[in-house]
Amino acid sequence: MWSWISVGLATGAPFLAKYFSTTTTSMISKTPVYFFSHGGPTFMYRDQGEPGAYDAVQKLGDEIVNLKPKAIVVVSAHWQERTISVTSDANNSLIYDFYGFPDFMYHEKFPTKGSPELANHIVQMLKDKGLKAETVQKRGIDHGVWVPFRVAFGSETKLKDTPLIQVSLPYNESPAYSIELGRALAKLREENIIIIGSGMTVHNLRDMHLAGLYGPPLPYAKSFDKALELAVTTHTGKERETAMEKLFERADRIKAHPTAEHLLPIYVSAGAAYEDIGTLIYTRQISSLGWGIYKFTS
C-alpha cells in the first residue's frame, strides 16, 4: 500500500575541455529534454507504485544511458528557493524527505557524484541571462530526484560516473519564470548535458487521502492532464509557452495543483526545449494524481 505525504542544479579551460569538447565521439548536437512524474518514495518499487509509469521511466533511463551524456541537470518539485540554487558538492548525499514509511526505506542508496565546476558554470549561465543564482553545498538531492532516477538508472546507477546536478525551482509560482529558467539552462543541451524536470502532471494530496490512492480518477485529474498534454504536444516555441501559461487560468488547475510546485518542472523542461516537439510517453490518471511522462526532441 502506498500512502505518503511529501515535504515539500567561473569555469576554467580544463573543465570546459573535459566536459564540453566537440571532438568527443558521444557528442550530439542537442540533447533531448525530459519530464518525469515521480510519485512518492514507493515509486522506486514497481509493485508498490504505478507500474506503467515505472516501466516508462526505466525505458527512458536506458535511452539516456545510451546517449552517454556528460552530465544530467534536474529540477525537482521538492526544492524551491528565492535565489535559484545549484548543488555543488563533489558527491551527492540523499535527502529522505518523506515521513511515515518503513525504516528500510530510509536506508536506500543511490550513489552519484556532483561537480563543483559544472555547478559554477550553470550559475554563471543563469546570471548571464539575468537570473539571480548561487551554488549551495551539503544540500543533497531530494526524493523527487533520486527516487525516479533510481528507477531510470538502477539502484547502483548506470550513470554513477556522470555528474548529477540539481537546480532549484523559483520560489514563486509564475509559469513564465519557470519557462525563463528553462530557457536559461537550454544552452547545456549543446554541451551534451541532459535536462530533466521531475514533478507530477496532476498532484492533489488532500483529495488523494479523501478519495483513496487507487480510486478512479477525479474529473479534474482527467481534464487537466489532457489539457496539459494538448498544450505540450500540439505547439512549439512561443505558442507552446503561451498555451502552457494559459493553463493556469483554467478552473480545474487549482484542483489539479493546489500548489504549483509539482507542475512547474514541466515548464522548465518546455522552456529548455523551446522549438522542439513534445511527445507524451505515458500517462495515467489515478484518484487525484496524473502520471504524465514527456520527452522533447527536435
Rank of each mutant, 00 (worst) to 15 (best):
Asp103Gln: 14
Thr87Arg: 03
Thr24Cys: 14
Lys187Ile: 05
Ser198Asn: 03
Phe98Leu: 09
Glu229Pro: 02
Phe296Glu: 00
Glu229Leu: 10
Arg284Trp: 05
Lys129Asn: 11
Thr283Leu: 00
Ser115Asn: 08
Leu213Asp: 01
Gly271Gln: 04
Ala184Arg: 04
Val167Ser: 08
Arg139Ile: 02
Leu218Lys: 10
His143Asp: 04
Val75Pro: 00
Trp2Gly: 13
Arg189Ser: 01
Leu185Val: 03
Val65His: 00
Phe149Lys: 04
Leu67Val: 07
Thr112Val: 03
Glu117Thr: 07
Val65Gln: 09
Ala90Leu: 11
Gly130Glu: 10
Arg82Trp: 06
Val33Asp: 00
Asn172Thr: 15
Val123Arg: 06
Pro116Lys: 07
Asn172Glu: 14
Val167His: 00
Tyr214Arg: 13
Glu180Asn: 12
Glu241Ala: 07
Ala251Glu: 15
Lys59His: 09
Lys109Phe: 06
Lys68Pro: 00
Ala56Met: 09
Ser178Gln: 03
Pro51Cys: 09
His257Cys: 10
Leu169Asn: 08
Gly39Ala: 08
Gln80Asp: 02
Ile281Glu: 14
Val232Ala: 10
Val202Met: 01
Ile193Pro: 09
Pro219Lys: 09
Met105Ala: 06
Trp291Pro: 04
Leu126Cys: 06
Val167Thr: 14
Ser85Pro: 03
Ile122Gly: 04
Ser223Met: 07
Arg206Met: 12
Ala71His: 12
Leu205Ile: 13
Leu181Gln: 03
Ile84Lys: 01
Thr157Trp: 01
His121Trp: 12
Pro258Phe: 09
Tyr106Ala: 11
Lys158Ala: 11
Asp161Ala: 13
Lys127Asn: 10
Pro69His: 07
Leu289Gly: 01
Phe110Met: 03
Asp47Ser: 14
Gly52Tyr: 04
Tyr282Asn: 04
Asp103Lys: 15
Phe296Leu: 01
Ser29Cys: 04
Pro219Trp: 12
Leu228Glu: 10
Ile293His: 07
Thr135Ile: 12
Met1Asp: 13
Thr42Gly: 04
Val65Asp: 02
Arg240Phe: 06
His203Val: 06
Glu229Met: 10
Asp62Cys: 10
Trp291Lys: 04
Glu108Lys: 14
Pro175Asp: 03
Glu134Pro: 03
Thr22Ala: 13
Tyr294Asp: 05
Ile254Phe: 15
Trp146Asn: 05
Lys68Asp: 11
Ala211His: 07
Ser3Pro: 11
Glu173Gln: 14
Leu210His: 09
Pro216Asp: 13
Gly40Ala: 15
Tyr282Ser: 10
Thr25Lys: 15
Ala77Ser: 13
His78Glu: 08
His121Val: 01
Ile72Val: 15
Tyr267Ala: 08
Tyr19Cys: 05
Thr236Arg: 11
